[in-house]
């Protein structure tokens, strides 16, 4: 994925990796390390919590724990790559695009996800995908990363949701 990101960006100039809280942040860190190993450049990373940009506050109620949003300086003129664990309906990415727009005007925004599980509700596609998994609405895709969960693992639990 790191290679694909570099290819996508034609190098590391102006590249900024922005992880979506919470597992996207860890994935962005890992991709940055891999890029550093390969290119010898540590690209700037940011973290984005999209809770306050969700469109479902009225239906699911407030999410009490809001993560940190921290961006490495002004994004104007940069190539921002949004990193997240699972791409599903696309609503999270929609919120992330809205939020990024409030921090400046990147020259380009791309999307990099570990798992694309299909089921989009918005016209959003990832530029870099680790793995495509076909799932139904009743399935749950669980991504675990060592930094948060003690191990790296992706589980697809069929019919986990009623």
């Amino acid at each position: 994925m790191a290679v694909a990101v570099i290819e996508l960006a034609h190098g590391t100039d102006d590249l900024v990796l922005i992880g979506i809280q919470r597992r996207g942040v860890e994935l962005a860190e890992r991709i940055a390390k891999l890029i550093e190993q390969q290119e010898g450049v540590l690209v700037p990373r940011g973290a984005l919590d999209i809770t306050l940009y969700r469109d479902d506050l009225q239906t699911v109620g407030p999410k009490p724990v809001i993560g940190e949003t921290r961006l490495p300086g002004d994004l104007t003129g940069k190539h921002a790559v949004i990193v997240d664990d699972v791409l599903y309906t696309g609503r999270t990415v929609r919120a992330a695009l809205d939020e990024l727009a409030d921090f400046g005007r990147p020259k380009r925004i791309s999307l990099c996800v570990l798992v694309d599980r299909g089921g989009r509700e918005l016209p959003i596609q990832a530029d870099v995908v680790g793995k495509v998994v076909k799932t139904g609405p009743g399935d749950v895709v669980e991504v675990q990363v060592a930094e948060l969960d003690g191990r790296d693992q992706v589980d697809v639990v069929r019919g986990a949701r009623q």
Partner: peptide, 15 residues
């Protein structure tokens, strides 16, 4: 996290 919102260039979220 709301403290940070007030430090942003655009001090506004759509919540």
């Amino acid at each position: 996290p709301f403290k940070e919102v007030s430090e942003r260039p655009i001090k506004k979220v759509p919540a």
